[in-house]
Amino acid sequence: MAQLRLRESQITKIHYLTGILALFAVAVHILFRLIMPFGQSLTFQNVVANYHNIFYALLLEAILILISIHGFNGLRVILIELKQSPKWDSIITILVLVAMIGIIAYGTRTIVIASGL
């Protein structure tokens, strides 16, 4: 188990990288509205059509994963500062990991159902 534990510098690298990539992915996601007349981009039919586009679904999945990793690690960092004990650190890390996996799984399920795969 100790072998699997990431060093804090490795976690920080992941945190920075996911933050930058999420910014890029969200920018592409917003730019998707420009491939059609802007006023119509959020109509029901167009949104459903976007979800059925495999590249768009993959982009949403990427955003979901990147933001979940980045956001939940940020939450972990805030929470471990509240108390200074190794037990608290481990509990918070496990809880945050479980919550992150749960959110990614639920979000992935939604994307898969919406895309009609």
Binding site: T12, I80, D89
Partner: peptide, 13 residues
């Protein structure tokens, strides 16, 4: 030296 500071309550806080 990196190992000493590269921990949960180390430099990254």
């Amino acid at each position: 030296r990196f190992k000493i500071i590269d921990e949960r309550h180390g430099i990254w806080r």
